[in-house]
Each structure stands twice: as structure tokens, then as C-alpha cells.
Amino acid sequence: MEYGLKPLGREKLWLWLMLVPTIIGLLFGTIGSLLATLTLSFFDWDLIGSPTWAGISNYDALFKNESYMEAFSNTLKFSAMYVPGVVIISLLLAVLLNRKIRGVGIFRTIYFLPTVTSAVATALVWNMIYGRDTGILNFMLESVGMSPICWLCTNNAMLSVVIVNVWGAIGEGMIIFLAGLTAIPRDYYKAAELDGASGFQQFLRVTIPLVTPSIFFQTLIAAINAFQAYDYIYMLTRRSGGDSSVPVAVFSIYRNAFHFFRMGDASAQAIQLAVLVALFMGVMFWWERRYVVYE
């Protein structure tokens, strides 16, 4: 299948000319640093001396490195909660807000607000919500006679952090699903209604299959964000020494590279994370071919 017109003659030259900045950015920025990371992962380098060949020892060390394995499993746990959370909640939200009700614009804006608010500011607000002594959440718990919970202590920090991240991401997800929902022709619902389908059945048999492209896209975006999640997590869980009580893989990569001077280890960790993301994408694209319905 081909779309659009083919550029001809001089047009082609201009086309390339226009593409050059992006291509250079891709070559040097993205592909270049990817190759550099891949290369560095086979070397030991402390950022000052010259890199020395390390073979696969950095990869070997990955699995023996307790703190990295903890960070890596935190990333997996985080993703396992975050991705379904974002996809399901933002889909439901979009369905709710895809009606002609009074003030729907206000609600859409409210849910979208976190997306455009700085992460530092929102993390501050959430710190006030989660506070053990002064937090709003514990105040509510105590006023109904429950005992306060230390939301950001080591045991609960993961869950608390997932909640904030999901809350911050549903606005964007909602917009994508709203776009997908608007594209569904009303006729389908009319037809389903004539056949006597209930609202829930319509949702299950009409809406869901027809928004699968959005679900696919949103899952992909959410998964990529989950593997890279860092800002809210760090700001909610940072400790005095610059450490975090929920260290995630990205955090570990940064610490190893720029605090512990182990570029090789950090690169190996980055490559491992990249491979994992690539595998996940592979599964997603297989799923897309199998289940996603394009009209």
C-alpha cells in the first residue's frame, strides 16, 4: 500500500534537504549514542582514563550486582502495576467523558492538568498528601478512626509512587482514547441498540474492538514511560545522600555512570533495559497483527 504522491526530480532534493537536520540528529544523537553505549558496555571506563576492554564481564556482573537487580526488579514491578493502571483507567475515563454532558470540557481539562504541570510541583503536592504526620491522606484515615500509614516509608513507597505516576499519566491516555472513541461511527451503536444490546454489551462488543488501535498505542507508550519513569519517583522517595528508597533501573544507570564512575556497568545496564523494551515491543507488534482492528 502506498499513500500520497511520490516526490519527483528537484522536489526530491528539497525533501532530503529538509530531512537532513532530523537525520543528523538521529545519526549522531540517537543512533550514535546507542552505538557508543553498546561499545562502552564491553569496556571498563571510569570517565577519566582510557577505556579498557572488559569482554562480557560487565554483563556477567549485572546479575551479581545486588543493587542493580533490586533496581531492575523495581522497574518490572512498577511497570506491571503502572501499564495496566494507565491503560484501563484512562480508557474508562475517556468513555465516561465521551458524552454530551454539561461541563465535559471542564472535566477533561481537570484530568489533563497533571500532564502540563511540572513534575517538581506535583511531587511537592503529593508529598503533602502522603505525609505521615501532616498528610491529608492520613488525616482522612484518622478522622474515620483508622491508624495512619507511612505512605512513603520503604514498605509502601512502591504503591504510593505507582499511584502518583498513574494519576499523572491518565490525562494523556484519556486524550488518545477520546480521539479513538470519536472515530467510531455512531451507526454501529445505533445498530447494536436496535439488536437490543445493553450499554455494557455495546462497550464490550463495539467500543473495545474498535479502540484496539488506541489501546495498542497507549500500552506501548505507557510501557516505554514505565521503563523510563524517574522524575516523580525520585522526588517522592529521595533520601539525604541522593539515594532513593525505590531505586529504578534508570536511576541505577545514572548512579553507576556519574556517581560510581562505572561507565561500563552503566552501559551494560542500559543495553539490558533496551533489549527488554525491544522484546516487549516485539510482543506488542505481534499482538497488534493478531488483534488490533484497523478500519
Binding site: 505525609g131 505521615r132 498528610g135
Partner: peptide
């Protein structure tokens, strides 16, 4: 105050 409380 515990570290969590001090942070608040």
C-alpha cells in the same frame, strides 16, 4: 523525628 517525618 523519623526520616519520613523529618522529610515532611
Amino acid at each position: 523525628p523519623t526520616p519520613a517525618t523529618a522529610g515532611e
